[in-house]
């Protein structure tokens, strides 16, 4: 029993020494941060991340010529990494099949769909194979997309763009484009919304959908 008591006293002395050593606030706060770091990293790994988009391939949705800033956007990893929800029309970040660098494109078609391709692609119509997606930039002339490298495996897609954060004038969630009310005043915003709706309609017209609405 005395041996146990000695063990306990040495343990308690160790504990008091540890408390004394970590009592200064800088050390205390560093240890606190380190302790809770895994939760923070997991949040950016599986939850949400903020990133800056470079390049012109998603014009005019992202980085339009009228903007002097690069777009800062919020990427949603949860619905891709955990829920595995891939929808046609979503803007996604994926690793390029050429060099595994991150690129931002829009999902045009999912497995089973038939897509009318654009010029660099050798075939006029292609059926997207199992577990793959057809991705394209909104600006076909400045985009290296599925028309160059063909359908991409869904595993390369790693997050979905959910909102624009900056510039402040274009902030907000990205939703399915809808036709503006014809009764409203024809403002530049009205015309922009109409143009976006027409672009989405043109995108859809190039795809012959298979039965399922979404794939997992």
């Amino acid at each position: 029993m005395s041996r146990l008591a000695a063990l306990r006293s040495s343990w308690s002395s160790l504990r008091t020494r540890w408390r004394q050593a970590t009592s200064p606030p800088p050390i205390k706060w560093t240890l606190f941060t380190l302790f809770w770091l895994p939760m923070g990293i997991c949040f950016t790994d599986m939850g949400y991340t903020v990133k800056t988009v470079t390049g012109r391939s998603m014009q005019p949705t992202l980085n339009p010529d009228s903007s002097t800033w690069r777009d800062v956007v919020l990427f949603d990893r949860w619905s891709i990494v955990v829920e595995r929800k891939y929808n046609r029309g979503d803007i996604v970040a994926l690793k390029s099949p050429y060099d595994a660098k991150l690129i931002v494109k829009r999902i045009i078609a999912l497995e089973g769909d038939k897509v009318k391709t654009l010029p660099p692609y050798p075939d006029a119509v292609v059926e997207v194979p199992e577990g793959h997606a057809w991705v394209e930039g909104d600006e076909p002339f400045k985009s290296e997309d599925s028309n160059h490298f063909g359908p991409v495996p869904l595993g390369l897609i790693e997050s979905k763009l959910s909102a624009i954060i900056w510039p402040w004038s274009r902030r907000g969630y990205l939703n399915e484009p809808s036709l503006p009310d014809p009764q409203d005043q024809r403002s530049p915003a009205w015309r922009a919304q109409k143009a976006e709706f027409e672009r989405a309609a043109r995108r859809r017209a190039r795809v012959e959908y298979s039965g399922s609405s979404s794939s997992s």
Binding site: R84, E130, G131, H132, P153, L154, G155, I157, S216
Partner: peptide, 8 residues
Amino acid sequence: FMSPLDPT
């Protein structure tokens, strides 16, 4: 690697 046929 992740299967190209099924990302899960």
